[in-house]
Amino acid sequence: MTDSTSDGAHSDADLDPANEPRQSGPVERADGAESIVRIRSLVKTYFRGDEPLKVLDQLDLDIPKGSFEALMGPSGSGKSTLLNLIAGLDRPTSGTVVVDGKQIDRMGESQLARWRAATLGFVFQSFNLLPVLTALENVELPLLLAPLRAAERRKRAETALKIVGLEDRVKHYPRQLSGGQEQRVAIARAIVNDPKIIVADEPTGDLDRQSAADVMTLLEKLNQQLGKTIVMVTHDPAAAERASIIRRLDKGILV
């Protein structure tokens, strides 16, 4: 595990959209490592009434492909905002966000939605499974957007549930599962479309110690065995310990 900060200074050429890579895929960094996420001069300002509140301030960040990163920091430090910007759920006030070779801050809503469906897997703190769907159907959900036959969707969802060790819970509804099991279903849902990046927002926040450990073991396995890049926001030092890189945010800047 390595503590790391932002990549620091950047040239003007880095910020020029004309120089942004157009092809899909990770960007090669100056040091030769491939960046799957590249952020430059990122500013995010919210307004409370007329009063501006700068949550992220001129932030630069490169996330290497295949890394497992933990974003830590006190409440209000901007870590969830950063995660949302990387996931294309929110838009920066200024700056650029390039993920897997796509400048996502310029995409329209529908384009972003398609990009998220193809590129990202989400793990939420509260699991966010749909209560009216079984575990299998919840996992199948992202595949409804892919041009797949029903049998193929089902097969992939079953495989994903097998990876998280819940092949015997396919017909269970979320209310019939423990918190740890719900989060594992959520992880299966996050990997079912074979995303390049998994973003996890406090994935152990609602779990007991043992369940949290199981979930982190699973995320570790996905990173190490399947090569998934994982970006995780967490308050939990034990969870952060499992990451390969820990970044700390404070008052909107990486420290």
Partner: peptide
């Protein structure tokens, strides 16, 4: 909240 989840998973506004 569920609509937010669906949007995050890639479902479009339409």
């Amino acid at each position: 909240n569920e609509y937010g989840v669906l949007r995050a998973l890639g479902f479009s506004p339409s």
